[in-house]
Computed example of a mutant assay.
Amino acid sequence: MAEQGTKGPAEPGKRTTGRTRRAVLFGGIGVLGAAALVGREEIGRAWWLLPGVRKPRKEGELDHAGASWTAASPANWRMADRPDDYRIDRIVVHVTQGSFASSVDAFKNPFHKASAHYIVRQDGHVEQMVRELDVAFHSGNRSMNERSVGIEHEGFVDRPQDFTDALYAASARLAADVCRRYGIPVDRTHFLGHSEVPGADHTDPGPHWDWDRYLGLVRAGLTVTAATAATAAPAAASPGPG
């Protein structure tokens, strides 16, 4: 049978070669097409880096109103434009395995090569060190870093007394705020311990971290926020005295 598209029988020895070349051609086009799609996705994520496009940033600007600001070294995080380039749908819970002060110093150190968006102190103080729109190097997994907010907690995994009432309450308020802004469900699929991140070699937050208590506080924080918003909305819509 003649090869489709030819006017006569294909010559022996060339038919196979023709098909091989065609397969190679189309295979090459497929590879180039896939590469183009990947390239287009990366370009789409990076377009905002062009002069005049980047979102305005101010040193010390906070994402969580209850936090204070200390900047992590730029070597310990990557500039991004989340959630426009990477969706945010996870929160990763960490324990510092050291003091609050030593953790702040570590994230400021360009040789540390790691950081988190927030550190929660045992007395309930919250320090933000990386903007949520940027990618902090906190989980040891690039994909997870790109999609998550990392929250460190002052303490040691083998000392349950380090997880104080004030620490739980402050972290839950922070997490509820993050969940509200990005629509993150409050469950164990969307809240992970560092040890649960694929490829992680860490053990935090460890067996003494009370997940039921923590997620209960986060849900309560979301309920309070929703109730406050619902109460404020009618008042804002009401016309003033005529």
Rank of each mutant, 00 (worst) to 15 (best):
T20H: 00
R22T: 13
A23G: 14
A23D: 09
V24I: 12
L25T: 14
F26W: 12
G28W: 11
I29F: 15
L32K: 02
A36H: 04
L37A: 14
R40I: 13
E41G: 08
E42D: 09
I43G: 00
G44L: 03
W47F: 14
W48A: 09
W48I: 03
L50G: 04
G52W: 15
V53W: 15
R54H: 13
K55F: 12
K55R: 15
P56K: 07
E61F: 02
H64L: 13
A65R: 11
G66S: 04
W69V: 07
W69A: 06
W69K: 01
T70P: 00
A71Q: 13
P74R: 01
W77A: 04
R78N: 07
D84A: 12
D84N: 13
Y86K: 06
H94P: 01
T96C: 12
Q97K: 02
S99L: 01
F100M: 03
S103L: 01
A106M: 09
A106W: 06
A106H: 09
F107L: 00
K108L: 04
K108M: 11
P110K: 01
P110F: 10
F111A: 12
H112F: 13
H112W: 13
A116L: 07
Y118P: 04
M129V: 05
V130K: 04
E132N: 14
L133G: 06
D134P: 09
A136F: 01
F137Y: 11
F137L: 15
F137Q: 09
